[in-house]
Amino acid sequence: MNHDPFYWGRPSDETYGHYNHAIANAKSQIPTSHTQQPIITGTSVLALKFKNGVAIAADNMGSYGSLLRFNNIERLIRVGTETIVGISGDISDLQYIERLLHQLQTEEEVYDSDGGHNLRAPHVHEYLSRVMYNRRLKMDPLWNAIIVAGFSDDRTPFLRYVDLLGVTYGSLALATGFGAHLAVPLLRKLVPYDADYEKVSEEQARVAIADSLRVLYYRDARSSDKYTFAVLTFENDKINVDYKQDLKVENQSWRFAENLIGYGSKQQ
């Protein structure tokens, strides 16, 4: 026996030959993992609470790197009768999450024969946060940032975020991706404090989201001017979902563009 501590627990050289150190430093042998980076991506999702509801919007672009490859990707998913899930990030992972949510609804219908409409936004968000964190633990995350919009059990507006790390947070104004930098300050200008969402009217919220989408279209090179806009309101004991597709960013003015310098080739 070799009494040198360095050789403890190793196969003996006499029997097996020299230890192959490449086994311990197997960097070159890790399998290629094509799923661990996004391929086709969707950009920001924006959402804002107001007095008696929530507004959420996302454009229809699916980019392949910097190539604007698809302009017909729907990124707002309806779950049940009173919840909208907005997803940015990898589009194939989006489609997988969409399938999960549809399965969830089917199972819910099987056991909810009385039609209690039990699956609400907080439950959908909790479920998605478990899915996202579970995939993160497997070192195979779903490459998305998600915003869930709807109503709490007591019918107050519900808005909460979860991303590929499993991080969650809620706020009166939420945005994913580029929108978190560009749109959130604009939305926050309307209402600086979370508790004040009750001072915002539906109309103000609609305008603020539409304005933010326009600014994003000016500044975010992965965005498009075709978008989907969903507004959920709770009125007269009833939840109303206004879900509009194929909207166009209005009031565009590119006059500021001629003064831009510093991008691309040198200008006079």
Partner: peptide
């Protein structure tokens, strides 16, 4: 409780 953060519905429990 863990996955949906809501108590199990009695009807769902009994049908299960």
């Amino acid at each position: 409780k863990l996955v949906f953060n809501r108590p199990l519905l009695t009807s769902k429990a009994v049908l299960s």
